[in-house]
Simulated assay, not measured.
Amino acid sequence: MSKLDIVRIPALSDNYVWLVHELESGDTMVVDPAQAAPVLAEADRRGWKIGAIWNTHWHPDHTGGNAEIKAATGCEVIAPAGEAERIPTADRLVGEGDVVRLGSHEASVMEVPAHTAGHIAYHFAQDGAVFVGDTLFAMGCGRLFEGTAAQMFGNMARLARLAPETRVYCAHEYTQSNGRYALVAEPDNAAIVARMAEVDAKRAAGEPTVPTTIGEELATNPFMRAQSAEVLAERRAAKDSFRG
């Protein structure tokens, strides 16, 4: 089985769109296109034809490029079944346990509600990759816009059970601000201190800090490390008002 070629495309102010290509079949898909222009330009530069869009949730900074990319390529839009009414470009709706494919590679759909009510993630178990949208970030998690701390706690526990080497492809460059809060949440965590030194150096050089891995998050993410939904709720509320 050929490897997946995963390309990071910056969009808007701090979004990342992921362009994913399978060499053997030539199949290409894009995860959460915030904008169409940079995605179409990158695919064209590489000679790749986009055959599908995979959405994790309905927010405009994840679906804003759907219509234009679909019009330009004729691609299929795969989206969470729980948010069908909010993603009018959707062609195929998927939910927990469904399988989506890119060439010979299979991804299972995980329902991870809390940031939005129907949020999903796509897990390529054999490839050691998971596309999590705005559920899990490097040293952070998504805001609880349409769900509860209990739901997010369940999401964190579920993602924590993935192989530690699993690469986590989240959709925003939030690592530095998340890390500043993590230092406050767990001031005695040496792993966070060490990681933040690396993050600050990368950002100073204009370099990205994602993807991350499940193992890194288990060591440094205060939300994945929360021992109860109550603790996660307290940390989420504190992070929402954090200005560090």
Rank of each mutant, 00 (worst) to 15 (best):
Phe137Ile: 03
Ala185Met: 10
Gly244Trp: 07
His115Asn: 15
Glu173Thr: 00
Phe242Gln: 02
Ala41Cys: 04
Tyr169Thr: 01
Ile214Val: 15
Gln151Ser: 08
Glu42Lys: 05
Leu162His: 05
Ala190Gly: 10
Asp188Arg: 08
Arg8Tyr: 06
Pro164Ala: 13
Arg101Thr: 12
Tyr122His: 15
Leu183Asn: 10
Asp240Ala: 14
Asp127Arg: 08
Asp200Trp: 00
Glu173Leu: 01
Ala149Met: 07
Lys70Ala: 13
Ser104Val: 03
Ile53Ala: 04
Pro208Gly: 01
Ser228Tyr: 12
Glu173Ser: 05
Leu162Arg: 07
Ala163Asn: 13
Ala72Pro: 08
Ser177His: 10
Thr73Met: 08
Phe223Tyr: 07
Arg45Ala: 13
Ile192Ser: 04
Phe223Met: 03
Gly133Trp: 06
Ala36Trp: 12
His62Gln: 14
Glu198Lys: 12
Pro164Met: 05
Asn189Ser: 04
Val210Asn: 02
Glu76Ser: 10
Gly26Val: 06
Asp44Gln: 15
Asn155Phe: 03
His62Trp: 03
Ala197Asp: 15
Gly97Leu: 12
Val20Pro: 13
Arg45Val: 00
Glu165Gln: 05
Tyr181Pro: 06
Ala125Arg: 14
Ala226Cys: 11
Ala149Lys: 07
His105Tyr: 01
Thr212Cys: 10
Ile50Arg: 10
Asn221Leu: 02
Leu93Met: 13
Ala43Thr: 09
Met29Gln: 12
Pro10Trp: 01
Gly244Lys: 08
Met156Phe: 09
Asn155Ile: 02
Thr209Ala: 01
Thr148Asn: 10
Val112Cys: 09
Pro222Gly: 03
His119Phe: 08
Phe137Asn: 02
Ala233Leu: 10
Val184Arg: 14
Gly74Arg: 12
Pro60Gln: 11
Met196Asp: 03
Arg46Glu: 08
Ala90Val: 06
His62Arg: 02
Asp44Val: 07
Ile120Lys: 05
Glu22Ala: 06
Gly206Tyr: 01
Glu76His: 04
Thr56Ala: 02
Lys239Ala: 08
Ile69Met: 09
Val210Glu: 01
Glu24Gln: 13
Met110Asp: 13
Lys239Pro: 00
Ala185Gln: 09
Ala205Arg: 02
Tyr122Gly: 06
Glu173Ile: 00
Arg101Cys: 13
Glu24Met: 09
Met196Val: 06
His123Phe: 15
